[in-house]
Design a protein around this nucleic acid. Structure first.
Length: 274
DNA sequence: CTCCTGACCTGAGTGC
DNA sequence: TGCACTCAGGTCAGGA
């Protein structure tokens, strides 16, 4: 489910709820999600106080008073919901729930269990195996035409596949890659190393604009994504190509094409994107 | 290194 | 209704 804008939406919603709050109790229903969870995670967390949540790529990081940081990845189907009181009941896939001293709860549910929870030493985030190789944040100043030129040079894979590689750019997923390539007028099938000149010039701003617009709208709700308060994300109304196979391009009316790359569906306008 | 495939899971939708 | 099959917002491990 969640790409950078959805994760950022979750982080933003968590911030005022958890920051400075002590953990009163933790409800953990299983010892593993994608991987085994830290031993005694519930006991370790109980009593600690949350700092301000931040984000790296598609990961949410929640600093704790005890010098550790809780790392959360939502996988494909993960969602976090915030409640102002103890939920009446817990769903089958509500694997991890936290009760705060202000009586609020947040509940992490993840039907497919591709998500993950881990603990790391605060300050050593960059050394964590899941974060160590991660590329630049596309909304940071380090992300530029120059950076893209550097990491794309010589790559033979399709540009779409390269943009999905978290080691190059952190946080892009299937929706926003398709949307950004449409905005930049670049075919997803073009070799990454052949994205040069005007195309290269358009790509970084296109990525940035698409992400910022999606964050503003609370992300894209297709199936699973809801904001922690229960609101859906409205960027779904702004999608130009993703999920619109066969429908007319909003710009030229040609039918949107569906392709398969790296085992994943992609969408593009064969007339507007080259 | 780079690139590609399969694997991990559940649930929703489709077609017979 | 039921069953078989496909697909889904991610990404890691393993092999060529």
């Amino acid at each position: 489910m969640p790409e950078l804008p959805e994760v950022e939406t979750v982080r933003t919603a968590l911030e005022p709820v958890v920051t400075g709050q002590q953990i009163r109790s933790v409800r953990l229903t299983r010892g593993d999600l994608r991987w085994p969870l830290p031993e005694r995670l519930d006991e370790i967390l109980t009593g600690q106080i949350f700092g301000m949540p931040w984000r790296r790529g598609k990961y949410i990081l929640l600093p704790l008073s005890g010098q550790q940081t809780l790392l959360i990845h939502l996988g494909m189907s993960g969602a976090i919901r915030i409640y102002d009181n103890c939920p009446d009941s817990f769903g089958k896939h509500d694997h991890f729930s936290v009760e705060l001293a202000n009586n609020n709860w947040f509940v992490f549910s993840d039907p497919r269990r591709f998500g993950h929870l881990d603990l790391l030493q605060s300050g050593n985030e960059a050394a964590h195996p899941l974060l160590a190789a991660m590329g630049v944040e596309p909304l940071s100043n380090a992300f530029s035409r120059t950076y893209l030129d550097e990491v794309l040079a010589g790559r033979k894979q399709p540009i779409k596949t390269a943009l999905l590689d978290q080691r190059l750019i952190a946080g892009l997923g299937n929706i926003y890659v398709s949307e950004a390539l449409f905005k930049a007028g670049i075919s997803p099938r073009r070799q990454a190393g052949n994205v040069v000149g005007k195309r290269a010039q358009r790509l970084a701003p296109a990525i940035r604009n698409v992400l910022n617009a999606a964050i503003e709208q609370g992300g894209t709700s297709l199936r699973d994504h809801v904001q922690p308060g229960g609101e859906i994300g409205y960027f779904v109304q702004s999608l130009q190509v993703y999920g619109r196979g066969g429908e007319p391009c909003n710009s030229c009316s040609a039918p949107i094409k569906v392709i398969r790359q790296g085992g994943r569906s992609g969408f593009y306008c064969p007339n507007c994107q080259h």
